[in-house]
Each structure stands twice: as structure tokens, then as C-alpha cells.
Write a protein that binds this DNA or RNA. Structure first.
Lengths: 246, 246
DNA sequence: TCGCTCACTTGACCTGCATCAATGCCGGAG
DNA sequence: CTCCGGCATTGATGCAGGTCAAGTGAGCGA
């Protein structure tokens, strides 16, 4: 079930300049090389469970995972979408606060928890980068609260698509997206609904509505074409700074 | 409008062991003493505005403030409640991402931004504590997403009251609250509604409903008596770990 | 090729919360 | 004490999105 992944040199790593190791020099990188290991899991794998021990600190190298919590009556809320360079695990804590599930094939680069905690303590470049990434995550989580608390279903869907497009273009190093953008959805309708605080049905209906209004095209259920990124952004309630969400 | 506050020795500071300085030794504290200044503002003061420059890193010493964002059509969402020991400002960024408003008289202990960034860089105890606090804030923000995305109005109100009670008892060093608990609300109905993603009217109605069901008593609009903390927790959907929220 | 499964879509209906509109209440100024 | 203004409560009504239920269509194994 778990595929072994050949060890990759950090220099060749696709997230070399975005992950927690981004600011490391070659000497620090050598330490990481020794301690790291890769792991690849198929879609649907539960990587961590809320309240359960989590003995590794992992960084997503490729693929997509969700961070979620389920209430005992079955209501589920996804609180974060994990894409390449995002991390899983909380230094200083031995259990996971959330469920983490791979939604596509996911490869992570991971460290044994104690090892990583030592690295954070002894390597200022890592500690500083981790702080910076955590502050970004905090802003993203707070931005998402605005979406969940105050937006309509239509705005939620539009915001979700816009932010996915932003992240896709950011990870391929482009400037902000504009004009026509095409997008592959890593998430099922159900996972999107859980992320947006909606039901599957409402999610589906709003995607249909956006299509009928010409704001998106849907070559297949998992592929979205945005003819005008600017027009969709408006629908998302683009306001102040055009700041990133998700 | 802004009251000058006499400088307090860190040793006598009410948040000495909870704030970003918690892990500092006496030598580090001496550096902080030299760089810090206090400021006290009346209720209603805007401490920071989204998108505007924010040239200080501040820690709440006493009082309560809200962290919020307003959409251009007036919808507002409060994304965080700032209580003593919580910080305002983001190291490494010169503008505030959110509005910060004092909801009661607030006293902050603050540092000029560049000075604080230097302190973070050069003082591992501060950097580590800041990371730890930020990770806690991130968990709180994600927990709140579950409230906003998946809970009913009644559950939201109950959760809010329960988490306020938890924070009050935590700050006075007690174990978790139990039995009868009395609570002063720092927030108006409108501010509560903004925090919970509800309207004023729904907020008021649900508080009335909880009173009619005997789960709370309301000696005045701003004071809540919880006869049985356990019973209210159940109403809040207490599940897994009884983990803290807000 | 057939038919099964599973994800998605669509329809009909219902309900929880928003909206609109008074009314009540407390605290401060005169 | 009385008036006033802002906050809070309560009532009446509407609608966005949830719920329940029935298709639809693409992928896949037999």
C-alpha cells in the first residue's frame, strides 16, 4: 500500500525553495539529507488521525491532502488544503489535532519528530522559515474564516476556484493568473463541500450556475476552465488587496 | 484619547508567564524592559486597520480586542478574539492584514517593529515562544473554522460561551471550569454575531433560547451565569478531547 | 458488450437563519 | 425626574441552502 520512493537529492527537489528548508545553506541541507525519508501513498490514505499519535513531521512534495475534523454526528469540516511545500505535524506535540487524508497520490518528505524538533532548535534558518510559514498558514486560516462565516454559496465556490488558480500559478512561479486559466480539481465534490461548509448538492448546483452564467466551463467534472480570471474574481468578492486565500 | 500608562516592571506583569516573553531569562528581560512601552486606549479605539501600516508589535496586557475583516459591502467577520497575552502584529510584515479594535479599555506592551524583529532574530527564547504561540493560534483558527462551517446557531453560541469560560479560568490559573461558572461578556451582541457568523437578531434569540432552556442565566445583558458548565458543553457539541476553542 | 458502481447532477420540498420592523430597556445629559 | 440614544429583544415574513429522492453518465470488470 505504501510505495517506497527513491531518495531524491534536495537540490533536485521540486519544493526546494518553498518548503521549511527553503533558507537552508548547503551545509544545513546535508544534515537534512541524512535525516529525511520519502514516502508515497495512494489517494484516500489516511495520513494522520485527530487525537492519534503522529511521530513524523512531513512536508508534501507532490500531490494534495486535506486537513479536517469530523464531529461525532458525522459533520465534517476541512480546515486546510495541503499542497506541495505545506507541512503536516506540529513541532512540540506528539498527537495530531486533525485528520489528514491524501486526496491524490501524495509523496511526503519526512523526519522523525524528535529529530525534527532538534533541527528546529539548532538551526535558526529552519526555525525562522517554520515561523514564517506558520504565520502564513495562520493568515490563510483567518482568511478562510471570512469565507465560511460571511460568504454565500456562490461566492464560496468562486473564491475556492480563484484561490486554487492562484496557488497553481504561484507554485509554477508565474505572476498572478489572468485571462483564461485552466484548472484541475484535486478534490471531489464532497471534499469541496466539506472545505466550504456546504453540502454536495449545493456545491454541484453552484458550479452549474457559474457555468450557465459563462464564468467557468467544465470539460469534465474535475477540470475547470476559467475564460476570464478577472470576471470570476469579481464574483468571488474581490476587494481590497486581492490577497491570497486557501 | 490615548492614556499614558506608567511603566511596569516585567516581574510584576500579569502576563509575564504567558506572553511572548514567557521563556526569557532575567538578562533577556532586561533588554525587553529597555525597548518596551505601554499604551492604554479606551473602548472602541481602532488599533490597526487592514492594509494599513502597523509599526509596532504589541501584546495585550489587559482588556479585550477583536481581529476582524470587513467586506466592501459591509459584511464583517471577526477572525480572532484577542485577550491578555495575545499579540497584535506580524513580524516580517509592515502592514496589518486585519482590523484590530479595542472592545474594552485595552493596555498593550509594545515594541517598535524593527526592534522586535531584531529581538526575534537574536533571542532564541523569544523566537521559540513566538512559534509556539503562533502554532496555538493556528489551531484555534482552524478549530473556529469548524464552528463557522458546520455548527448551528445554537451550537455556535454555546461553543462561544464555553470557550470564553475556558479562557477565563485558564488565565486565572485554574483547572478546566466545572459546575457553576459566571462570566462577563466583553463583547456586544453585534461583536458576538460578527465572531460567530450570525446576525444580531439570531444571536439574541439563541441566548434567549438557552436561558429559557435553563442552560444559562442572564443577570444583565453582559453577564452570563452558567449553572452547569458540563450541560452547556454538551450543547456545544463537546466531543473528542474537550479541546480549547477561540 | 452488458451491466454495475460510484461520482455527479437535477428536482421538489422544507427549515433555519436572515431580513425588515417595532418595541423595550438602561444609562447619561440636562 | 425626564428625555434621548444606543443596545437588546421580540415578532412577522422571506429565501438561501439543506434534505430527501430520483436520475445521468463515465469507467470498469465480467
Amino acid at each position: 500500500m505504501v510505495k517506497l520512493t527513491p531518495v531524491t537529492a534536495c537540490d533536485a527537489c521540486p519544493i526546494r525553495h518553498n518548503a521549511v528548508c527553503a533558507d537552508c545553506d548547503s551545509q544545513e541541507l546535508a544534515m537534512l539529507e541524512k535525516a529525511k525519508s520519502y514516502r508515497t501513498v495512494p489517494p484516500g490514505t489516511q495520513i494522520a488521525a485527530a487525537g492519534q499519535p503522529l511521530e513524523h513531521f512531513s512536508t508534501i512534495v507532490t500531490g494534495c491532502a486535506t486537513l479536517s475534523r469530523t464531529l461525532e454526528d458525522g459533520r465534517r469540516q476541512t480546515v486546510g488544503l495541503l499542497l506541495p511545500s505545506d507541512y503536516i505535524g506540529r513541532p512540540g506535540r506528539a498527537t495530531s489535532g486533525y485528520d489528514v487524508e491524501a486526496v491524490s497520490e501524495v509523496t511526503v518528505c519526512r523526519f522523525e519528530r524528535r529529530t525534527f524538533e532538534r533541527l528546529v532548535r539548532d538551526t535558526p534558518h529552519i526555525a525562522a522559515r517554520l515561523l514564517s510559514m506558520t504565520l502564513d498558514e495562520l493568515d490563510a486560516a483567518r482568511d478562510w474564516a471570512v469565507v465560511l462565516g460571511r460568504m454565500t454559496a456562490r461566492e464560496k465556490i468562486a473564491t475556492f476556484l480563484v484561490s486554487l488558480a492562484r496557488r497553481a500559478s504561484a507554485s509554477s512561479g508565474e505572476a498572478g493568473p489572468s485571462g483564461a486559466v485552466s484548472l484541475h480539481l484535486p478534490l471531489s465534490r464532497e471534499a469541496i463541500a466539506d472545505h466550504l461548509g456546504l453540502t454536495i448538492e449545493t456545491t454541484s448546483r453552484q458550479i452549474t450556475a457559474l457555468r450557465k452564467d459563462g464564468l467557468i466551463e467544465t470539460p469534465s467534472a474535475r477540470d475547470i476552465l476559467i475564460p476570464s480570471f478577472e470576471r470570476l474574481s469579481l464574483e468571488a468578492g474581490e476587494d481590497d488587496d486581492g490577497g491570497p486565500i486557501v
